[in-house]
Design a binder for these strands. Structure first.
Length: 400
RNA sequence: GCAGGGAUAGUGAAGCGGUCAAACACGGCAGACUGUAAAUCUGUUGGCUCAGCCUUCGGGGGUUCGAAUCCCUCUCCCUGCA
């Protein structure tokens, strides 16, 4: 019995935006929702109680990382991801497909979301090699050799036991040729079919775990024909929802998401992988995205930046040394309720671990609240007003 | 008191006649971070009218075309012996 359900609650006329509810065995997710990232079965520097307190509805972990350490079998023995990490809400796992890029062609390179200059990586520097059947790669932890296939990714994710899993895909970069995108897409399609097949085998083997939902991932980079083609291909398969992945030029994000969502069935949830900048969030939701995840709030926080209504602020900067006000006046997060910018500045300079926790709490709270506010604005029809005012402030360069 | 060693930019520490405004580390300053090889990475860090010039390597004085680097002397510190 599949317990995964998605229901649309309200729609914003004149756009693809909607609110909805995803029902999983571990609880409901009110969408649009920002899904917090906990790659290695932990949201870095935060306890599950703190994750709950910032109103996170679900956590997304990573199959690649958990396979290498501590091993998916161990998590299975522990009773599944949710129990293992003491997070009693819904969970997602990413397939490990992203590592094809981050360890392969994008090794040591930042994925350029703006679409500027990019270099490809020479073969000898690569740690991952893609072929039609799968990916051979070397562990970033100890250099040991491994091989991922669609089947193994499903076995890993199935063992980890998240409520929502993603099909194994290949992520290309913007500099890959159109020809390569076609070749890659062919693999992503084949792997999607193999994921479906492998999951049905696993479900038959483990009826108790048939609750796990599987999302297919749409690739195709910046090409409209490829994006639409990929979406149509995946629709024909038995996916519970869809992820949209791959290299996306920042200024075309809304456009690309809209092509895909015009092809995908309306009544299934759509997840945009790895996005959380405020302007991207507005663009994504406006074009029909229900959930997204991103490492940015925690990573940026650990590295000293805080989200505010007037842009990100580098709290390590000396101008905050004697600033005894909270990160945001009136912010309801634990950090702003109790600590000043000067204190956070001090913790960051002293490399105190509490800095990571307090900065992460604020940033996660901030992004989650933004998405919650957007959800409410869809319900009461004030979406466009919120978007306009919000982004005007955020990019105003005012230092408040 | 005698013998030896040492004083280098914010700190520690290289340099031991020219390529030294002086390695490197830390600290400082600034920036970046979008399916986490990230408590990470990048740039910068004497001054200025900045492709050049000026003042620096404990203080002072020498040697030399040229000194942080050699000599004399003073001050302070360390280690032995008295």
């Amino acid at each position: 019995m599949r317990q995964f359900k998605f229901k649309i609650n309200t729609e914003l006329s004149g756009s693809l935006a909607r609110t909805g509810t995803i029902k999983t065995p571990h609880g409901e997710i009110q969408t649009p929702a920002f899904i917090v990232v906990g790659t290695k079965a932990t949201v870095k520097a935060m306890t599950p109680e703190q994750v709950k307190a910032v109103h996170a509805q679900a956590v997304l972990a990573n199959a690649y990382h958990l396979y290498l350490q501590p091993g998916h079998k161990l998590i299975e023995k522990a009773g599944g991801l949710s129990k293992f990490m003491n997070w009693n809400g819904p969970t997602f796992t990413d397939s490990g497909g992203f590592q094809v890029l981050s360890l392969g062609s994008g090794y040591k390179k930042v994925i350029d979301m703006v679409g500027g200059q990019q270099e490809t990586v020479s073969t000898q520097d690569r740690r991952a090699f893609v072929d039609n059947d799968g990916v051979t790669f070397y562990s970033h932890l100890d250099g040991s050799k491994h091989r991922f296939t669609a089947e193994l990714s499903m076995q890993i994710q199935h063992a980890i036991g998240a409520d929502i899993m993603f099909a194994f895909d290949e992520l290309t970069s913007l500099v890959d040729s159109y020809e390569y995108q076609i070749e890659s897409l062919r693999r992503t399609h084949a792997w999607a079919e193999r994921c479906i097949k492998e999951l049905s085998r696993l479900r038959a083997e483990h009826p108790d775990r048939s609750y796990q939902a599987l999302f297919g991932v749409v690739q195709g980079a910046q090409y409209e024909d490829l994006r639409r083609q990929c979406a149509r291909f995946l629709v024909a398969l038995d996916f519970d929802g869809f992820g949209i992945g791959g290299a996306i030029e920042k200024n075309r994000l809304g456009e690309i998401v809209s092509w895909v969502n015009q092809e995908l069935p309306k009544d299934k949830p759509k997840h945009l992988l790895g996005i959380s900048e405020p302007d991207d969030i507005f663009a994504a939701i406006e074009n029909g995205i229900d959930t997204f995840d991103c490492v940015s709030p925690t990573r940026v926080g650990r590295n000293g930046s805080a989200y505010t209504y007037f842009g990100r602020k580098n709290i390590v900067a000396s101008r905050f040394r004697e600033d005894f006000s909270p990160l945001i006046e009136g912010c309801e997060c634990y950090t702003c309720q109790n600590y000043s910018r000067a204190y956070l500045h001090h913790l960051l300079h002293a490399h105190e671990l509490l800095a990571n926790t307090l900065m992460s709490i604020h940033n996660e709270h901030f992004i989650i609240k933004l998405v919650d506010d957007i959800r409410n604005s869809i319900v009461d029809g004030s979406f466009y007003k919120l978007k306009q005012n919000w982004l005007k402030n955020y990019y105003s360069k005012v230092d408040k």
